[in-house]
Amino acid sequence: MRSGSLPDARWGLRATQAAVFVLLVGAWEVASRLRWLDPFFFSRPSSVAERVARWFASGEVYGHIYVTSLETLLAFLVGSLLGVVVGFAFALSPALSRVFDPYVKVANAMPRIVLAPIFTLWFGLGILSKVAFGVTLVFFVVFFNTYQGVREVDRNVLNNARMLGATDRDLLRHVLLPSALVWILSSLHTSVGLALVGAVVGEYLGSARGLGYLIHQAEALFDTTGVFAGLVVLAGFVLVVDLLVTSVERQLLRWKPPSHVEEAL
């Protein structure tokens, strides 16, 4: 599906991207060494790299990565499941959606971050409070997409299935669910990203483990190098998660025509 037919152009692109990276990081390093930037406030790439290497060498970072991954995964799974179930219920029952419409709107408009302290109070400092926080973020994305996916099913497609003898259960299984799944998958990057945001922000606000905790801890000690090192690990983590999501998405959406946007990229 990807344009693998132009390897030269792709290598050129990769090389340019790498050059941009080297230029920016190099400028930072030089500026820091020449004291144009105060290393106390800005650290420097070599110290950050050294710190990251030390974290991995000593193995102390793995525990944090594990906790953050677990929170992300749980928040994603629970939030998605709730979103799909409630989305279906609302889409199939107009009465239900009419009654709860204002509540859903208010709940979604609320800045979720204010809930974090309450969740800490309810669920403690462990992973549960982070999962709960992530769920409130993931739920709405999946819920709205499921709702939309079910509502947008073409009338003729439904009628065609009915004429072919589909029962209500057949319609759910062969038409409505796959159709909603398309929408849910299209928002997979967003919902996984939000699950991660929930985990990291939750950790940042109060916890004893995780990447968010690592960054917060360094900040509290005015350890700029530690903050940047935490960000680098987090960025790497996000990249890996995103690659995983992309490959899952490719597997599940094999039947889809390549979009023009994707081809342009």
Binding site: L164, D170, W255
Partner: peptide, 26 residues
């Protein structure tokens, strides 16, 4: 009766064969 619609009503996530099978699956 069966009904051949004017619009495209095949399920895009099913192959040609799976689409044709649908009525028998039901």
């Amino acid at each position: 009766a069966s009904y051949l619609f004017q619009q495209d009503v095949l399920l895009p996530w099913k192959t040609a064969e799976e689409n044709v099978m649908l009525g028998l699956v039901f």
